[in-house]
């Protein structure tokens, strides 16, 4: 299997605390992967490194078929290269309408000059409508996104991610604070997305992970503790110790 993202031997230290310790991780072009681990395992820091927010002290992060190093790229360049990220707290632009949010996320030139002269084409607008239907916000297009419910904001954010048309989606705790129905919807969105691209989901909730039905990586103290099917991983004694022993 070819790899889309290869993280190898990465370490990062904050004021003497090793948040990531010699972490290695691979993911293929169309794969759904869940990352679980207790608090402080380094899940968010891992995402920070991949998206360029944090620079690691050592190790390498290679991307795509050409094996480009992501370490020298800025956040914006990494995002343009095809990595989308969804934050733990829903972060949509609350001051702007759902449509504007989606339009902003659409995969289009990002440079300031081209954006300045860019005007929404019929095609772009219909793509937005399509996405809105996918995330169930077709009726809300003109509403300010700040007025949406928590779950709707989560979906809007996922919709924005999809609009970016990334090759890799990094999703941080998508199901937090959702009702069971909303979770159901989220699960299907993610599974659907993973058919055409790689999706990495960081999640606490085992039930949610089980429903994703995918390969699981367990992080602990900044490195990979176990990897495999959920059942396989949960049977691992070390994993049990880490989760229950504390």
């Amino acid at each position: 299997m070819s790899t889309l993202l290869e993280v190898s031997g990465v370490s990062v230290t904050f004021d003497g605390f090793r948040a990531i310790n010699n972490l290695s991780f691979n993911i293929g072009p169309a794969e759904l992967r869940a990352i679980i681990g207790p608090n402080g395992a380094g899940k968010t820091t891992f995402m920070d490194i991949v998206t360029g927010k944090t620079k690691p002290d050592e190790g390498r992060v290679l991307w795509g078929e050409k094996n480009v190093s992501l370490l020298k790229m800025s956040e914006a360049q990494i995002a343009q290269a095809g990595i989308g990220r969804k934050f733990q707290r829903p972060t949509v632009f609350e001051d702007q309408s759902v449509e504007d949010n989606l339009l902003m996320a659409l995969a289009r030139p990002r440079g300031p000059l081209s954006v300045l002269f860019w005007r929404a084409s019929q095609k772009a607008l219909s793509r937005v409508r399509e996405l809105a239907e996918e995330i169930g916000l077709a009726d809300q297009l003109s509403r300010k996104s700040g007025e949406l419910s928590h779950g709707q904001k989560q979906w809007l954010e996922i919709g924005m991610l999809l609009a970016q048309e990334p090759k890799l989606l990094l999703v941080d705790e998508p199901a937090a604070g959702m009702t069971p129905e909303e979770r159901e919807h989220t699960t299907s969105l993610l599974v659907e997305a993973a058919k055409t691209r790689a999706v990495v989901v960081v999640e606490h909730d085992m039930e949610f992970v089980r429903r994703l039905n995918c390969k699981v990586t367990v992080l602990h103290e900044g490195s990979v503790l176990a990897e495999g099917k959920l059942d396989h991983v949960t049977a691992n004694q070390k994993v049990i110790d880490v989760y229950l022993g504390r």
Partner: peptide, 15 residues
Amino acid sequence: GIRDNEARVRFLGYP
């Protein structure tokens, strides 16, 4: 977007 959440705009790929 930059005013309200600079980091988010950056992760959308805008310089």
